[in-house]
């Protein structure tokens, strides 16, 4: 067993999610409980075992580079929260 604890502040920063103090309190406990459960995988002998990223044998995925139909700019931006002159607007990033 690894006896790991989740450093919630660091993880929140990595995945860019803000939490209230109450949420943090609950989640710290829940994530530690889950981690303890997930730690069962630490007892398995995996010596010489390759990871399984693709369950079905991966095949050649190259295809010909043929231009196809695509979105118009308006279609591509129809779900953007804020746009101006066919561009997505964001707050100033560089002063």
């Amino acid at each position: 067993m690894t006896n790991q604890h989740v450093d919630l502040d660091r993880i929140m920063q990595l995945c860019r999610i803000e939490l209230t103090d109450d949420e943090k309190k609950t989640l710290t406990q829940q994530l530690d409980t889950m981690l303890h459960y997930l730690d069962q995988i630490q007892e398995v002998d995996i010596e010489g075992v390759e990871p399984l990223y693709h369950s079905v044998e991966a095949c050649d995925v190259l295809h010909n580079d043929i231009p196809g139909e695509n979105f118009s700019v308006d279609e591509a931006l129809q779900n953007a929260p804020d746009t101006r002159e066919h561009q997505i607007t964001v707050p100033r990033i560089v002063d």
Binding site: V6, I11, C15, L35, L52, Y53
Partner: peptide, 25 residues
């Protein structure tokens, strides 16, 4: 949050990579 932990540099081998190996089994 749990998935970010499992993929974070300190824990990737112990969780994500190990889980993928057990998946093979």
């Amino acid at each position: 949050l749990l998935g970010t932990f499992a993929l974070s540099s300190d824990h990737r081998d112990a969780y994500y990579m190990r889980a993928q190996r057990v998946r093979t089994l």
